[in-house]
Structure formats: C-alpha cells, structure tokens
Nucleic acid binder design. Sequence first.
DNA 1: CACATGACTAAAT
DNA 2: CATTTAGCCATGT
Length: 110
Amino acid sequence: MDNFFEKAWEVACLIPVGRVTSYGAIARYLGAVRSARMVGWAMNNCSAAKVQVPAHRVVNARGVLTGKHHFPGNYVMEELLASEGVLVKDNQIVDFEKVFWDPVEELGIH
DNA sequence: CACATGACTAAAT
DNA sequence: CATTTAGCCATGT
C-alpha cells in the first residue's frame, strides 16, 4: 500500500512551484504507464501521506482540475494554483503546455 | 481467485 | 458539452 502511493507522493512533491503535471505522467515515471488511476487514488489518500503533497499540481491529461472537489476544503485548487502562478479557467489550466512538468523529462528516464 | 473501487484516458455517441 | 464504453491497474475484502 505504501510503496506505490509513497512514490506517487514523492513525485508530486518534486513538482516545481508554478508547474503542474498529470496523473498519467506520474504513472509513466513510476513505470506503471497505465496506472494513472492509481496515482489519482494515491492523491485521494494523500491525507495519509507523512508529508504534504501538492496534489493541486496534479491534474488530468488535458490540464483539467478533475479532482478539485476532493480537496480538504478551505481553499480550492484554483486559488492554490493561482497563488503559485498557475492560472486556471473553468477547471482548465491556462497554457497547460507551458506549465506542464514531465517527471520523465525533468528527472530523467529510469 | 473473484469482485468492487477510483482525483484516469481515449474514443465514440 | 454530457454520457457511455471500454481498457487498465494497484489495493482491499
């Protein structure tokens, strides 16, 4: 249970401020190309993470904030992202391609 | 092993 | 744009 989730959280924590990535990208980096759903699930359990996980920087393949409603509350993804320099419009990240951060590219391919 | 879950993804309707 | 179908996969029962 911890292994996959921890890795997902780990990658999420590596996302630079002002950048975002997708569930699929993280899954791909972890070697589980088709496990985007697990990544999303890991984000769901990010409450169980030992450290804070910037799940708001993780969106779906199109840059859409699919999981915004699953956040603890208080501030929503859009505001968190906006405070980091990532603009969001209608659940859609603006200039997604420009702020997209691919762990495989940035951290290197295993 | 079978079955249910889920913050995914892609394609089709 | 909303909904459906279907593939995919780790985890828990």
